[in-house]
């Protein structure tokens, strides 16, 4: 059984009824890294949000199975607890809530959902320190309110830190390279690559081939106007880099 099976997924924006996803098909096996590329407005980020359960979208057709279970029937926190992680393109600021507090709350929520007790503070601190060292994050950063006043690079590293500690089965990276300089891109990519595992799948959404030089995918898909219009190996990314998205139209939505 595949980890993630998306079948003919249609979704529209609740407010204005605009259809963004128009029959997405995608299957991701365990341990695979899939990249989704495509022009702006092709529905890449919407796909990520619909998978994570963000409010404001309505699924009108199709289904999504995660580990064989109907993912769309679950609340966002339940999806997260079952192993779906979304690294946000624009991580949200929460004033006054220290990064540490947020992390601990999230980790313990996962543990409780699995029927485990809360993590002890020393254990928690040790795990955070190990993971944050690898991402070259300072303890001071984690004491500050989460994402508040962070640079673009700091926010993205913070996303990968959370991903490291929450150990998802499926990591969705939404334009993780946006706003990163070359050094930050390397740190973030190394962080992601360290999490590659036969039991963990990734869905890497990106506009540019650049990220895929660092996080090398097993498969590349091209989205256009709300559908996957072409799939191939990692060489497809290079081809796109050469030809651009002109062949795929810009966007219908």
């Amino acid at each position: 059984m595949a980890l993630l099976e998306i079948r003919n997924l249609h979704a529209r924006i609740k407010d204005d009824g605009r259809e963004i996803l128009r029959g997405v098909d995608l299957v991701i096996e365990r341990g695979q890294v899939h990249a989704v590329m495509g022009p702006n407005g092709s529905g890449k980020s919407t796909l990520a949000y619909v998978l994570a359960g963000k409010d404001g979208y309505e699924v009108t057709e199709g289904q999504v199975l995660f580990d064989g279970e109907d993912l769309l029937a679950l609340e966002p926190e339940e999806r997260a607890q079952k192993g779906v992680f979304l690294a946000f393109q624009y991580p949200v600021e929460i004033p006054g809530v220290a990064g540490m507090t947020f992390l601990k709350t999230a980790i313990n929520a996962h543990r409780r959902a699995r029927g485990e007790g809360d993590l002890s503070t020393p254990d928690f601190m040790r795990r955070v320190r190990d993971a944050s060292d690898r991402l070259q994050m300072t303890q001071d950063m984690l004491r500050r309110p989460i994402n508040t006043g962070f640079s673009g690079g700091e926010k993205k590293r913070n996303e990968i830190l959370q991903m490291t500690l929450l150990e998802p089965k499926l990591a969705i990276l939404d334009e993780t390279d946006s706003g990163l300089d070359i050094d930050a891109l390397r740190i973030v990519s190394n962080g992601v690559n360290a999490l590659r595992d036969p039991e963990r799948s990734m869905l890497v959404i990106t506009h540019y081939q650049r990220l895929l030089e660092h996080i090398v995918p097993d498969f590349v898909h091209v989205m256009s106007a709300g559908r996957v219009v072409r799939s191939g190996g990692k060489e497809l990314a290079l081809e796109l880099e050469a030809t651009g998205y002109a062949d795929y139209g810009s966007d219908a939505a």
Binding site: P91, T105, A106
Partner: peptide
């Protein structure tokens, strides 16, 4: 913000707990 709530819930934190977390930060 709906965005703040969604962010916390995406990390596995239930809605009530997410509100409490955001309010306590406030």
């Amino acid at each position: 913000g709906d965005d703040q709530l969604f962010y916390a819930r995406q990390r596995g934190i239930g809605e009530e707990e997410a509100v409490a977390l955001i309010v306590n930060g406030f």
